[in-house]
Nucleic acid binder design. Structure first.
Lengths: 219, 219
DNA sequence: CGGTATTATTAGGTATGTCTAATTATATTA
DNA sequence: TAATATAATTAGACATACCTAATAATACCG
């Protein structure tokens, strides 16, 4: 079933938020889409009617399997177009997001596949984010634990090994989102706690229990 | 001033119709956009308020200079994207129109220029239609008069040397639109009248006065 | 010229997706 | 726990762009 531009943007936002937060609330979606919680509630009802999400106020929004497929399809197109813009049209990696936001909504059965082939089936977009496969799987390229990163090295958050509320809540509080850049300043031999900066922010200390649950892409 | 998707489609339709018909009427626009004359009237008012067209019921709709610039910009993007889809993504020339209809509405200051350069500054789209320049000029590649085409040859209507109502009206009646394919069956020595088929339709006889006012692209 | 067909226009309504303001529910914290 | 802050929700409105149905204007044709 074809989706509107707006529906696609909600699905994408919910997908990304669900990787970051324990609960995807109307408020969080409204912040992400820079619109109003009231508007979000309306749309959540519509998406639920279309069986693309489930929503209740206690658990927040979750993508159904068809919703997740749709979200991954949009993300795939977004990232493929970003590769095109940078590799072929010589845009800077920082200029392409807004254009890809528009291009991702172009509908055509063959387009993503043809673009993918033309670009040489890239694994990641210009920001290093993995490109979902055509059958709706998000590859996980991050296989290194943050706890295994050496002092003086930097890395990017790839995915997480725990989706419990307290863990994700703490991640959020630290500003440790998917793709966040971590620089390892110090490691304590005694308890393996780590002093890091996140996106060049202020220094923070995190426990081994945390660093052993965060998968990163070194470099 | 930025234009909506829908406004852009109206401007494009009015541009194309104005090349074909002596009068661009609400009915004609509704037919072109496959919508309702009542909807067209609404939009014509809005476009007039924005100084993109002039409209009155006796003369129909005309693009203002800013309206024409906007229309040519959309047409430029449409045709550049068609070249991309055919040349780079290996679409067939008959598959690209609907995708280009979507891509032409992507907004970015640098995109058309970058795409143009990347494609090697093509002169025409996959259907042979000229690509407007970035400063809003539609090149005229047709320089051969239909009257100079030999018996047994075919050609495409490129542009016309007369924009008077009776002439354009007659053109329309014959089905001789921009891009129509003409095949020359016979030429009378006496009065230089010509027997032709238009888009492989039935044979028609046209006078020398007509054929001397139609510019075509041979082949 | 007058009747008929075609167009143009207006009026009013619909769907989408947004908004503000008011209300209710939940969370926080003193 | 009670007060307060934050979030969720409802109600009502607005803009865009479309629609149908009715009416007015124009064009066509015998």
């Amino acid at each position: 079933m074809k989706k509107t531009y707006s529906e696609e943007n909600y699905l994408k936002a919910i997908y990304h938020l669900s990787k970051m937060e324990s609960k995807v609330s109307p408020k969080a979606i409204a912040d992400a889409l820079e619109n109003n919680p009231a508007s979000v509630i309306d749309m959540l009802k519509k998406l639920q009617d279309k069986l693309l999400i489930t929503y209740d106020k206690f658990n927040g929004a979750f993508l159904t399997s068809s919703g997740e497929l749709a979200a991954l399809d949009i993300i795939r197109k977004h990232r493929l177009w970003e590769v095109f813009l940078v590799e072929k049209l010589n845009y800077g990696w920082d200029e392409v997001h807004d254009i890809a936001e528009q291009l991702e909504h172009i509908h055509d059965d063959q387009l993503a596949k043809k673009l993918d082939d033309y670009l040489g089936n890239p694994a990641v977009d210009p920001h290093g984010d993995p490109i979902p496969s055509s059958n709706g799987k998000m590859p996980v390229y991050a296989t290194t634990l943050l706890s295994d990163i050496s002092v003086g090295q930097s890395c990017k958050v790839g995915s997480v090994r725990d989706t419990s509320a307290p863990f994700l809540k703490y991640l959020k509080q630290l500003g440790l989102g998917l793709g966040a850049t971590i620089y390892v300043i110090e490691k304590q031999e005694f308890d393996h706690s780590m002093v890091i900066t996140i996106n060049d922010g202020e220094q923070k200390t995190v426990s081994h229990k945390m660093t052993a649950h965060i998968l990163v892409i070194p470099g």
